[in-house]
Computed example of a mutant assay.
Amino acid sequence: MDKFRLTEQDRATLQYRVTTKLREVILKGEFKVGDRLIQEEWADKLGVSRMPIREALRQLEVEGLVRIEPRRGAIVTPISVEDIEEIYQLRALLEGQAVEKSLPFLEEEEIKELENLYERMIELNGDEKDVEEYMQLNARFHQVLREGCPWRRIHGLIEALWKGIPPYTPSLLSNHLQEAHQEHFIMLEYVKQKKPKELREVMEKHILRTRDNLIQFIDKSGNQS
């Protein structure tokens, strides 16, 4: 039980840590589909009150990792490898197309914002507090890249795909941030050079590389459990 307990330093970012811990436990296969995630039990394991557990479960429900049912509480519904493949393959196709269509319409102000977002991301050193900030910067970087796309429907489809696990993968794949930095740098260079086709290609590779690393994480965790 002590292996799950949070330190005083951890409590500075309590909500993020609790959510991250529960997300990792689910994705590592420590629960079966249909298992209950009991608030009191996990509050005791993590050494916190029920409130951050309750808030974490609400977030995990949005991500599709749990389903909250009346009288039963949080039921584990972990994302499968097949789910990951579907989500990231669709993201690669749609986001690649969106950034290609977007690039001719990006203004200088948006390019400056992309530069600022990239610089802020590479300044982060990869600890847990920084990963939380990185997730926000990364999501905004992707959003700005596709903002100029004139296709209205594609935005809704992409946003629907982002409502699950994608925004939170940096918390699981923090050891792959250098790869992400390199890909973001290349994207930024193609934006400056006004090369929409090349931008689409690197965006597709970026998303599919993340897919492969996430599947590897899930498979490795499952084998170790």
Rank of each mutant, 00 (worst) to 15 (best):
A43W: 06
L90F: 01
Y190W: 13
R54Y: 12
Q216G: 05
T7H: 06
L199R: 07
L46R: 01
E147F: 11
K28D: 02
E128N: 14
H142V: 03
F141H: 07
R120Y: 06
D2E: 15
R211K: 12
D10M: 06
I215N: 09
V144Q: 06
P104H: 10
G222I: 04
L46P: 01
V25I: 15
K112Q: 12
E69C: 08
D127C: 10
L177N: 02
L37M: 15
S171F: 04
G47Y: 03
E107H: 14
E183A: 15
Q39V: 13
E189G: 07
I75E: 07
A12M: 14
E189P: 00
G148F: 03
F4N: 07
G126D: 14
R23Q: 15
L172K: 09
K197Q: 09
L188R: 08
I218G: 01
R200G: 11
T210V: 06
L27V: 03
I158D: 02
M203V: 14
P167F: 10
F31M: 10
K112F: 14
E69M: 15
I111Q: 11
H206N: 01
A139P: 01
L106P: 01
T19F: 06
S49T: 13
L172P: 00
L173P: 02
L188M: 08
E85N: 12
D35P: 02
F141W: 10
F185K: 14
M1Q: 04
L117K: 05
L124W: 06
W151N: 15
T19H: 10
E69Q: 10
E8H: 03
E115R: 12
V191S: 05
G47Q: 10
K194G: 07
Q15H: 13
L173K: 04
Q224V: 09
Q15D: 13
T19A: 14
A98I: 01
F4P: 00
F105Y: 11
L57I: 12
E55Y: 11
K28Y: 12
G222N: 10
E82H: 04
R58K: 15
E82F: 03
R152L: 09
G34A: 03
N138W: 10
N116H: 04
A12E: 12
L14M: 07
E123H: 14
G156H: 05
K21M: 08
Q136W: 05
V81C: 08
F105K: 14
S225D: 04
A139H: 11
Y134P: 09
Q89G: 10
R36I: 13
I87G: 00
Y16W: 13
P52G: 09
R91S: 09
Y16D: 11
E63K: 08
K45C: 02
P70G: 04
E179Q: 13
K194Q: 15
I87M: 03
L93Y: 07
A98T: 08
L6I: 00
N223K: 14
T7A: 06
R200T: 04
F105W: 12
N125I: 08
L173R: 05
E189Y: 05
R146A: 13
L161H: 00
N175L: 11
N138G: 02
R71W: 08
P78M: 08
A56W: 01
E198G: 12
